[in-house]
Design a protein around this nucleic acid. Structure first.
Lengths: 110, 110
DNA sequence: ATCGTATATCGATGAAATACGATAATGATG
DNA sequence: CATCATTATCGTATTTCATCGATATACGAT
């Protein structure tokens, strides 16, 4: 499931406030470029990421910034090996976002 | 299903770019106060909203601003009747966000 | 050791978000 | 009609975001 080139993703903190967590994850997705980056990473199972810059009409430094935001939110993880990066989308984290959303909508029916 | 005090929610535009839409909706949720507001509205099926200000440690004008953001993103809808507001959470829109998320993660398995 | 490539970080800048108080608008109430 | 209660809007200060170019860093190849 999880590709070889990346270390294990950090665990999800169950004690965190759901509203804060939801807002935090949503914020990381709150930019089209970051959604596209995430989609790009999700599309290739081997999580090779060299070439993200070419996919977007943005400067390299800007893309790097967006990657940082995604990384800090835990939506992607990985490592940089000198000249090569190996980022992976953390599906579990994305599913956590989905679960938080579902938890929101099913509240009143519980 | 949809409460009486609110008009019909605006329809969802199917032609919009999914990444833009996802980012737009996520952005509206990218603040804890707005998540709390949404949760508050989802909790009461009758969508009465008088009292949101009391739920949050924020000035009334700030809450109004957050409501505006949610409204413009289509996550809530409703009308103001002078001294009384009647906002409803748009469950369909929230589910659209969930669907866009799912569409993202299931991409490579399609 | 030098060059080339790929990524991250820094610094600056303009745009947008967040917050508040003050004010306006609108209905309800006396 | 005057007043109260509730919400929206305006003006403004502060912070955060987005973007870029320039520079730093790390590795591979020559």
């Amino acid at each position: 499931m999880s590709p070889k080139c990346c270390p294990a993703p950090p665990p999800i903190d169950p004690a965190a406030d759901p509203d804060e967590t939801l807002a935090r994850l949503a914020k990381a997705l709150a930019h089209p470029a970051r959604v596209k980056i995430l989609r790009f990473l999700l599309e290739r199972e081997d999580c090779m990421a060299g070439g993200i810059v070419q996919e977007l009409p943005l400067a390299q430094s800007t893309v790097s910034q967006h990657l940082k935001v995604l990384r800090e939110a835990g939506l992607i993880y990985g490592e940089v090996d000198g000249t090569r990066i190996c980022y992976c989308a953390d599906r579990e984290r994305i599913e956590q976002l989905g679960a938080l959303l579902t938890g929101l909508t099913t509240l009143s029916y519980a």
